[in-house]
Design a binder for these strands. Structure first.
Lengths: 145, 145
DNA sequence: AAGATTTTGTTCATATATGAATAATGCAGG
DNA sequence: CCTGCATTATTCATATATGAACAAAATCTT
């Protein structure tokens, strides 16, 4: 939903609205790029972190890497597991921790998904040619203060 | 979740990541501003559209104004109704359409919420002083092409 | 007028996210 | 060693969002 900032009278309103709108649009394109692999942004992000780590991460670690709460990861790993992309492995050393281990299928989907994301980023990169990105990043920084 | 763009190697990656991150942060601050009124961004946006319209809008109209699907509005109006901020009114002229009518409490919450949002936008406006907003908007436009 | 189509809202299944409460396990200090 | 505290994941309730399937009502077509 385009929920935020229903009025856009002054400049700040317009800027913030445009920013949020652009972010949502990019997220949509990102999901769209992953759709052919049966992935979503959330699933792909988790796979990326696991592949990057090169080992089975505890769900808490994963939550930290993805900056979200643990209960979210519990559900996400449920879905990834039912897709056959990861398996839960109990750590024998600490029987509280459950690790997510990427399966072979998970690896494959990650590789394919990466290609699609790569294409998307190429396209974005191209359309950003000649833009004043430094000014852009300055505004983003200013916004977060 | 900070799901999108798990790698930030090239410039485009960094830009897009920063953009999405900033948007989420702004949404968080927006929700935070509305929290004292017991509102959320979604609820407030719906109230805004209804107040702006100055009449009871059909749920389909509301969905269109908020750029989301109808089933979303059904649920949102359920919650608004159980908060006592709107009531559903059946249109006698077309018995299919259900209109959302803002209650007195809804008006009050909208007014109070608007003040908080106003403050947030003031703060943002201040922190954007002296920034190159034209360049910023150019980059946003370029991104959406 | 009867039948087909469109419009409208709801319901259901699903995905994503949060936060509170809970259960199981591990650990530190007495 | 036990007791209390911390950590870990899960469950539950909730909010937001989508899209498919549905039911009721209105409209169009013949």
């Amino acid at each position: 939903m385009n929920k935020i900032f229903p009025c856009q009278e002054r400049e700040a309103d317009r800027i913030v609205y445009a920013l949020v709108h652009a972010a949502h649009e990019l997220e949509r394109r990102y999901d769209e790029a992953l759709l052919p692999e049966g992935l979503t942004a959330a699933k792909f992000a988790a796979l990326c972190k696991l592949v990057q780590a090169g080992r089975a991460l505890g769900l808490g670690e994963l939550a930290e890497q993805l900056t979200c709460v643990r209960s979210n990861i519990t559900q996400l790993v449920d879905r990834l597991e039912s897709d056959g992309l990861v398996v839960r492995v109990v750590d024998p050393a600490d029987r509280r921790t459950v690790r997510a281990q990427v399966t072979e299928l998970g690896m494959k989907r990650h590789t394919e998904g990466s290609k699609h994301v790569e294409e998307l980023l190429e396209a974005i990169s191209t359309s950003l040619k000649g833009q004043d990105l430094a000014a852009f990043e300055n505004v983003l920084s200013a916004l977060l203060m």
